[in-house]
Write a protein that binds this DNA or RNA. Sequence first.
DNA 1: TGTAATTAGTTTATATGTAAACTAATTAGC
DNA 2: GCTAATTAGTTTACATATAAACTAATTACA
Lengths: 164, 164
Amino acid sequence: MEKKYCHNELVSFADRDHEALMGVWWTGILLKKRAKHFFSNFLSSEVQFNIMMVLKYAEKPLTQSELGEQLLVDKSNITGLLDRMEKSGLIRRLSVPDDRRCYHIELTGTGREILEKVEQPYRDYVKKLMAEFSAKEIDDINRYMARLEKAVAAEESTAFKYRS
Amino acid sequence: MEKKYCHNELVSFADRDHEALMGVWWTGILLKKRAKHFFSNFLSSEVQFNIMMVLKYAEKPLTQSELGEQLLVDKSNITGLLDRMEKSGLIRRLSVPDDRRCYHIELTGTGREILEKVEQPYRDYVKKLMAEFSAKEIDDINRYMARLEKAVAAEESTAFKYRS
DNA sequence: TGTAATTAGTTTATATGTAAACTAATTAGC
DNA sequence: GCTAATTAGTTTACATATAAACTAATTACA
């Protein structure tokens, strides 16, 4: 039986490999959309939630660059994100005495309060979703994703960009 | 051992469930970033490639809405995407005789030529990536992603949005 | 058949994402 | 110590994404 692109009936051109890759892709997109909506009463996006979680649980103060690395967010993107979050009172930029180039980012009281409201419901949501899977299956998913990420990174280093 | 958010050393607050979910999330983001870069010599994004592939392999002419459903792209997003693709000569909007509200979207000659150039390298890339996995593992990934998507959809219908 | 509801697509406002060029501060290396 | 290279962050230009309000066309149905 031929497999489908994007889980739909109108289009078919994918093989099993491709379908698996697309599956991860689409599921990722779906999770992103769902999360954005989940937080939308409190935050303008799931990315802001991620930033706040990283700030809350970081073992040391983080600079913008470090924050970006944690979240795969480009430095040119971090600037605007933090601008908006600063404007809505969620975070603060603190100058770093040793290095006048960078800032340490910290949650404000308001930021902490809002995180307090959404963190547990979020954790409950994740639990509920993943209740679908057994412990072994959870481990499988963890391992498969780690391997896929590694494969992407490996391929990227050998074939930087497709050229005609 | 405590697990990490975003595969990094500075932050730890996730359990195994959460890690698996984040794994899918991050891998999806990674694939998106990689694909965007892969196509960047020919197309402004991987989304444009996906649109062109769907158009090429569709069994019947697609309207903007149908295209959007295939790709999880919102109708208000499709408009701009197709505007840009029309401007760069990749697609055409054809009026539909029976229904003056909608358009059928088709690839132009230029669009087909460009797709011709990138489709095979893309397929090769997917093959190379997924060579990491055995046939059984590929099937696992397919099944897991399908179940996760279903769980997201099911949860979404019961708890539409988190509210304070 | 005439009105209400629905559907297709656009527009606006705002957020996130990338690349490239840029400034300012720091570090490397002679 | 001085110069070159690097690093942190910003800015610009553009692409993608969502929600909500909107127009125009079609369909439902009383």
